Amino acid sequence: MTAADSFGSKGVLDVAGTSYEIFRLGAVEGAEKLPFSLKVLLENLLRTEDGANITADHVRALAGWNPEAEPDTEIQFTPARVIMQDFTGVPCVVDLATMREAVAELGGDPKKVNPLAPAEMVIDHSVQIDVFGNAGALERNMEIEYQRNGERYQFLRWGQTAFDDFKVVPPGMGIVHQVNLEYLARTV
């Protein structure tokens, strides 16, 4: 993950025989006075410091944050993963597929085109309610949904197998926020 550890913050936390990689904020002077939201950003910088895109100077700039000063350093944030719902996710998969096609036409390896961070798409906004008021309504609405959008679901199934770190949660599992909290969310 990280290629640099300029502050010696990288450590290991052992919990019941399982080791976790952690980055101790206390290794950075000034971290103790930051608000919690900026501590989250500081941990992200330490975790993703590579000496090129994210440097020790970026870490120092954030640790020296002054709420009254005019910002003078752009601080990069690198998400650990991306979650999308169907209306934003489908165009992303189309873009990735198009990029793969272009890379192949130029003689490159299309398998190198993948999301930069793990991406998960929850299909939750396209299901319509045609049947209601009976015990079989959910199942019947799902059947109708797959009939209406079968081609789209075939494409997304292809995307899930074609791209590294891309997963699709099918319709009928719940809304994206609930699915994220109950099934997908991971902690640092």
Rank of each mutant, 00 (worst) to 15 (best):
T2D: 10
A3W: 10
A4W: 00
S6W: 00
G8Q: 09
G8I: 09
K10L: 11
K10A: 15
K10G: 11
L13R: 15
L13N: 12
A16K: 13
G17Q: 01
T18Y: 04
S19V: 08
E21C: 02
I22F: 02
R24D: 15
G26A: 15
E29W: 01
G30N: 00
G30K: 01
E32D: 15
L34R: 01
S37F: 10
L38I: 00
K39R: 14
K39H: 06
V40K: 11
L41W: 05
L42N: 07
N44F: 07
N44Y: 07
L45R: 00
T48E: 14
E49A: 09
G51H: 03
G51K: 08
G51A: 05
A52D: 13
A56D: 09
V59G: 01
L62P: 02
L62A: 05
A63R: 03
G64K: 00
W65I: 05
W65L: 08
N66Y: 02
P67G: 06
A69D: 09
E70W: 05
E74C: 04
T78Y: 10
P79N: 06
R81K: 12
Q85Y: 11
D86G: 12
D86A: 10
D86V: 04
F87V: 14
G89V: 08
G89W: 01
V90Y: 11
P91R: 04
V93W: 04
L96P: 05
M99P: 01
M99F: 08
E101F: 10
A102F: 13
A102M: 14
V103C: 04
L106M: 12
D109R: 08
D109T: 08
D109L: 04
K112H: 11
V113R: 03
N114K: 03
P115I: 05
L116Q: 12
P118Q: 01
M121T: 01
V122T: 06
D124C: 13
V127K: 00
Q128E: 14
Q128V: 09
I129K: 11
V131A: 06
V131G: 03
F132R: 14
F132Y: 14
A137Q: 02
L138P: 03
E139Q: 13
E145D: 12
Q147W: 08
R148T: 10
G150F: 00
F155K: 09
R157L: 11
V168D: 03
G172S: 09
G174H: 00
G174C: 00
G174L: 03
I175E: 15
V176R: 09
L181I: 12
L184K: 05
R186E: 14
T187D: 13
